[in-house]
């Protein structure tokens, strides 16, 4: 692919204070229109990778998005081009869902005009929130609050989306809807979405590429169905598992059993 378009991350080191979490991450170029899954076991470094790319934690890296070197931009400049969704849900407050979305857009520098109102209405409709728009965030369920968090980002139409477990509070239907909608919109608008997920079936079904992290290193990177192999599943998750096709032809992860490790709890 051309170096002028897409995302290129090289030599990324990141952590919290003296504790290094990610070491020397080199990713192959990611083309515009890609939906990328960041996968890995607990403590593999998924949120750290997203925060480092967003510039929310100190990191050494070369991060190039299209024609701009993001790593040289100050954090607030970088975040104008990036939509980062933290793992934590928007906290309950008496703010209305609509005004939280509007407030975030205004705080991020968007003008309050008819175009913004249309965008908000369209995003609310796409996420099934139109009936709840004028309800206080404190009255919404966890899943709906997560959708409000996503709406805050979608309204800004960033070039790069970094979503940390965006489906953690969603029901099965909305997990599918969200990933399908992300796939559509990234292709339609030529944006890039990098999504940290725990559900490998969602990644297999919807994501073009997968980055697999293990203990702070990049273990594998490539088309999702090609990198989620029994060998990778053993090394990254310590499970014996395989990917098979269901009767409709979709790839499905089947877990046989966990592998015995030093940290495996003893059998009852």
């Amino acid at each position: 692919m051309s170096l002028e378009k897409g995302l290129r991350i090289t030599a990324l080191h990141a952590g919290y204070g003296a504790r290094r979490v990610l070491e020397n991450i080199d990713m192959p170029p990611i083309a515009p229109g890609s939906l990328v899954a960041v996968l890995g076991a607990n403590a593999a470094g998924k949120p750290t990778l997203l925060k480092a790319v967003a510039g929310l934690i100190p990191a050494q890296a070369r991060i190039r998005l299209h024609d701009r070197e993001l790593s040289q931009l100050p954090s607030h400049e970088r975040l104008r081009r990036i939509g980062y969704l933290p793992q934590v849900l928007p906290q309950p407050s008496s703010l209305l869902a609509y005004e939280l979305i509007l407030g975030s857009a205004r705080a991020a520098g968007l003008a309050h005009d008819e175009e913004l109102e249309k965008r908000i209405a369209s995003v609310l409709c796409g996420l099934g929130l139109q009936e709840l728009a004028l309800r206080p965030v404190a009255e919404l369920s966890g899943g709906k609050r997560q959708l409000v968090g996503l709406a805050q980002i979608f309204v800004r139409r960033p070039e790069l989306l970094l979503l940390d477990e965006p489906t953690s509070a969603l029901d099965l239907r909305w997990q599918m809807e969200l990933l399908a909608s992300l796939r559509r919109s990234t292709r339609e608008h030529e944006t890039i979405a990098i999504v940290a997920l725990h559900d490998l079936n969602l990644a297999l079904r919807h994501c073009d590429l997968a980055l697999i992290l293990a203990e702070g290193s990049l273990l594998a990177c490539g088309p999702t169905a090609e990198v989620i192999t029994p060998e990778i599943l053993r090394r990254a998750w310590h499970i014996e598992a395989r990917v098979e096709r269901c009767s409709l032809g979709h790839p499905v992860l089947l877990i046989d059993h966990p592998l015995q490790t030093d940290t495996t709890p003893p059998a009852a």
């Binding site: 970088r78 928007p90 703010l95 975030s104 205004r106 705080a107 805050q152």
Partner: peptide, 20 residues
Amino acid sequence: AWRLTAMRAGEEHAASLGIP
């Protein structure tokens, strides 16, 4: 006012908008 309104979603959400 808008930045403080956005802070009500929580610290991490506000920081993700580029609010220092």
